[in-house]
Every structure is written in structure tokens, then in C-alpha cells.
Design a protein around this nucleic acid. Structure first.
Lengths: 121, 121
DNA sequence: GTTGTTTTCAACCGATTGGTTGACAAGGGG
DNA sequence: CCCCTTGTCAACCAATCGGTTGAAAACAAC
């Protein structure tokens, strides 16, 4: 997933209304009107939100007469998870490595390998 | 994770420079100046980015003399993964259910054993 | 073919964003 | 003690964002 794609996808999910729409779409495809119904904002505002989600690749929209069917693209969500988890795991791995080093300093298993600075606190 | 927290976290990651900073921090804590070094923007701009990440809960900043140590909070990334995966899995589950229904309609394996509201398990 | 439904387009508005520069606060090192 | 490094605060600017209203496009239905 390229940088500007991540930009758009994260930005798309940085809005509660759009996350609501994503939640709604996990129950099945819907038209723009159906998606707009729960909100008291204008239909045009929801239409804009859907366009943002579409440009971000999070939903696809297919024409069905004068209606538009909006479909959640779960694969794009998977791309986001990949990015986040890569960094989350890297940070956790580094942390556990640090803890291991600290533990080793605290209780040196092989006494001879303890350099002069090795001190029990 | 509450709505406005998700707002801030997703928005924080919707910027390439801030994602870069998160990547850098997986290698270990860093000062503001160290984080700013690779970029040709002003130090103040990077300082603002770090503040955005901090407000979003993605990093923590501790004072160390006149320097500030910036630390990646992997737990916050985990919160984002939870939100995304919940919806991703819901959508995929619905999709595979739909596929199963369609396959069943296409080739009804045991015509008599399929009740109207059909539950095989 | 006129009417009604669904949705987008276009222009506008106030708030927020990412960037700048200038000033200054907080400390460490000569 | 003086100054130099590190970083934030404050004000400003152009661009983007989420919302509005009004108009029009696309199509079904009568």
C-alpha cells in the first residue's frame, strides 16, 4: 500500500460518520439514501463522505439505475491492519529485547562474562 | 477506544511525515531534534507533528533536561488494529455466508434436509 | 412525455491543518 | 556567568474539510 493511499485511507477513517458508514456496510451493501437515513445532515454531505471512502479504496460504488450500491472493500481494511501491525510488532519486539538485556544485566547467567561495569543494584 | 480517540489516532496516521516518525520510533526512543533531522522542514513543524501524535496517544513525551524523549506507545496502535479487524472480519464473514447461500442455491446437495430458514449446524 | 425519485455537481462558508517566521523559556558547558 | 543548544509558544498564511443550499442529471413510472 503506497503512501498516499495510506494517507487517504487513514484520513477517511478519521471521521466518526464515515466509520459509522463502514460499520453499517459490514451488515451488507446499501444505497446512498439508506446510508444517509440515520443522520440529520443533508444527503449531499453523506454523498461526499461516500466519495471520500471510495477514493480511499475502502468502498466501491456501482450504478444500479438511478441508485448507487455501496459495497465495503474489506481488503483495503486488511492493508491498514498490515501497516499498523508491522510497526506495533516492531516496537514490541524492541521492547522485549530491551527487557531481556536489562534482565541479563540484573542477573548475569555466566559470571565470567560480566564486565567491570556489571553491578547488581 | 472512544470515538474521538479513534478520530485523533486515525487522523494522526493520515500524514506521511507522522507515519515516518512512528516508523523511526520503532527503532527506539528519540529526541525531537533527532526526529526532525531527516526532514528539510522547520523544527517547529516536526514539534507540531509530535504534539499531534501525543494528543492522539500514539507517543508519550518525557522531559529530559532541555531535551524531550519521544516514545512510541504500541498499545495505542493495538487499539486501532482492534477497530479495523472487527469490521474487516464482520465483512468477510458476511461475504462467505453469502457465498455459501449462493452455492447452496446453485447446487442444493440435500434438497429435503434444507428447511426454509436453513440451519445445518 | 411529464412527473417523481435518487444522487451528484457547483458554489459558498467557517473551522481546521500543515507550514512558515520571530521571540523566548529552560538548561548544560565553556 | 555568559552563551549556546533544544524546544515550545504565538501569530500568520494558504489549502483542505465538513457542512450548507440550489440546480441539474439520470432514470423509473405513470
Amino acid at each position: 500500500m503506497a503512501g498516499h493511499e495510506l494517507d487517504r485511507a487513514f484520513a477517511a477513517l478519521a471521521d466518526g460518520t464515515r466509520r459509522d458508514i463502514v460499520s453499517r456496510l459490514t451488515l451488507g451493501d446499501a444505497t446512498v439514501g439508506e446510508l444517509a437515513a440515520p443522520y440529520d445532515v443533508s444527503l449531499q454531505a453523506i454523498s461526499k463522505h461516500i466519495r471520500v471512502l471510495e477514493v480511499a479504496g475502502l468502498v466501491s460504488v456501482t450504478a444500479d439505475a438511478q441508485r448507487r450500491r455501496v459495497h465495503l472493500e474489506a481488503a483495503a481494511l486488511a492493508g491498514l491492519v498490515r501497516w499498523i501491525e508491522r510497526h506495533q510488532r516492531a516496537a514490541e519486539a524492541r521492547l522485549s529485547l530491551l527487557e531481556a538485556v536489562l534482565a541479563d544485566l540484573d542477573s548475569p547467567t555466566s559470571p565470567n562474562t560480566t564486565p567491570t561495569k556489571g553491578k547488581t543494584s
